[in-house]
Design a protein around this nucleic acid. Sequence first.
DNA 1: GTATAAACACTTTTT
DNA 2: GTGTTTATAC
Length: 780
Amino acid sequence: MQMNFPFLNDLNESQRQAVMYSDGPSLVIAGAGSGKTRVLTYKVAYLLQSGMHPTSILALTFTNKAAREMKSRIAQMVGENTARYLWMGTFHSIFSRILRAEAEHIGYSRNYTVYDSADSKSLIKSIIKELKLDEKVYKPSMIQGRISSAKNSLITPHAYAGNAEQQKSDLHAKVPLLREIYAIYCNRCKQADAMDFDDLLLQTNILFRDHPEILQKYQHLFKYILVDEYQDTNFAQYLIVKKLAESHQKICVVGDDAQSIYSFRGANIDNILTFRNTYPGARLFKLEQNYRSTQTIVNAANSLIDKNSAQIRKTIFSKKEKGELLKVTNVYTDLEEGVYVADTIRTLHRKKQYDYQNIAVLYRTNSQSRVLEEALRKQGLPYKIYGGLSFYQRKEIKDVIAYFRLISNHNDEEALKRIINFPARGIGETTVGKLFDCAQTHAVSVWEVMSDMLKYNLPVNAGTAAKLGNFRELIDSFAAQSGELNAYEMAQSIIKATGILSETFLDRSPENLSKQENIQELLKAIHEFCEEKEKAGEGKFYLIDYLAEISLLTDQDTDQNEDNDKVTLMTVHAAKGLEFKVVFIVGMEEELFPSAFCVENARDLEEERRLFYVAITRAEERCFISYARSRFRNGKTAFSNPSRFLKDIDPQYLDYPQEEVIEKPRTIGNWDRELDMERIRFNGISSGYSFRNESSDSAMMPPPRPAKRLTKISPAETGNSTPQKCDAIPAGTFVKHHVFGIGKVISTSVVDGNAKAEIDFGDKGKKSLLLKFAKLEILK
DNA sequence: GTATAAACACTTTTT
DNA sequence: GTGTTTATAC
């Protein structure tokens, strides 16, 4: 097909082929930084250009943000008026939309509530309580996880109870009643007209399974299907896509198996690995040129991911400059790590002219952010943190939204529980307990009980009954207004009439002030929503419309637009899809990265390695990796060894520290020795490093790199106030080390271009220290 | 029923 | 060090 599509010139050969092929199924393996988004956007534009109607194209992304960005780029190419009709969004948002339209077929209403994970956890908790089970055995978060993975694997409660393997596994986990909890949980969700995140996918599958005519309708509607980040799809998503593409097989999935990092959420890397079995005859396109990073970064990342067994082989290459080595730094404590990061950022900013916004600090867990944050703040460096509590998860915001929810769905019991006594109106725990018990025994909703307390024999006194009646009337009066007022007017009316407004205004404490601000922020956001939608001529924007819009938003999606020149702090997961000139990867320690939860299972370990791969490939020019010997964790200081992943990287791409070598190896018992041998065999290192004891880092580090360059020591890089040279401390000098104390220099030498000194620390023993690394104070 | 203090346990990643 | 749950006094 020949047509005028000048944009094709922007693409390289493999990108162009991937864009232009649309006769059948195709798999695009897009290495990190290989222009994946470009291929997707151009492909959609190309389809539109070739005459396909925008409503016929379904494009599924991983985040709302990705969808929004892609949509606006497509709009630039083909015009806003075409782009806006594309079906483009996350699985969750697209299929929640479809579920609203088809809700009646599966016994839900079109205004069904979406329970977030806090809601579902709270519901699980109350079920555990009702069943009089021990919360210490039936841990809500664990139950939630197991139910979630059942749903993601499309195992309904009925199938769950009949599945011998599940039963065995539950018995083994000492939670044989999980199937009861699962069944009750689903009933209660249904009763509340609520779906949790996993339901959005599960119910879509149920809809398509039980209503072939509806499936057919959407098969017919979507003439071409694109899926981004296919490596992170779970079984439920896989099957939805497979069914929709069944008749025409016009499907293109894009992804990178090397960046599959969401298995904990049910993502199955096999979906991408076996794509060509699912879709016989599928064409495979590989995008192997990396346009993002230097050769050194790409090569280092390649050498790391090469250690994984489950992958589609590919050769990622960069034609950019060679660039600097990845710098590995060892510090003593997590606090020191923060100082090191802050110092280095300061130097990079001042000397190398990097903007703060080009720098990111990536960590494995959110809890690591605090020390880093403090270090940056102390030095007056601007930063922003992604993750943690999102705006919509804050208490005060959830409270206000709970009103919205209860008003539009009286059966939303999680919302009701939240606000029945907020602001305090004298309806306490015991009353709420009675209310829920009563609803349970009569198999009706709590709202129904409140509507006719006498009929259901609710055992409360007249005063309490009056309070309950007042609350019900309050919500009812709002509900009566909600058909006339738009979302913004409703929100205003609600916070006024409930007393939320006056309550926050009375108290002038700092925390209340921030609550006030947040509520104002929420009102502002609702106002903007209304204006935008009503301007676009979509009619009045009601409360239910607002709820449908926000229930699937996450903090990833809220724009962080204000003054942009800030260092970014985030988890590696959150960094997926982003890029920065300079990347710091901190906390490269065993039990942290890889996480202690993942070391037992080879599959999990490979995922952790992919996570590290994702982290490294975020960097365009410089990558700094650090690890600490001790770290404050769970209220305790824990010692740690360098991450095993450090020696998965070919040492020729690393600039790593030479640390002190402990001269007298501890006597190693046979058991230790066996363990070490095991580790060495596993890691494929056979050098003289084998018999170090476990706390020695040498066993964990790559073998020394041949002397190549003499790293210039700058104070900022070492944290030293005075650069050390070999001749500064002749034999006989007394020095002070912050760990070993005072010692006497025996001799000095130069090894691999690094100054090294033998120092006798008396009862602490003789140590061989590298001046580049050791912090020595010269005593005169 | 409510407000406060003390005890508790909890931390991987998130649509 | 955090937020959440429980015990205690009012």
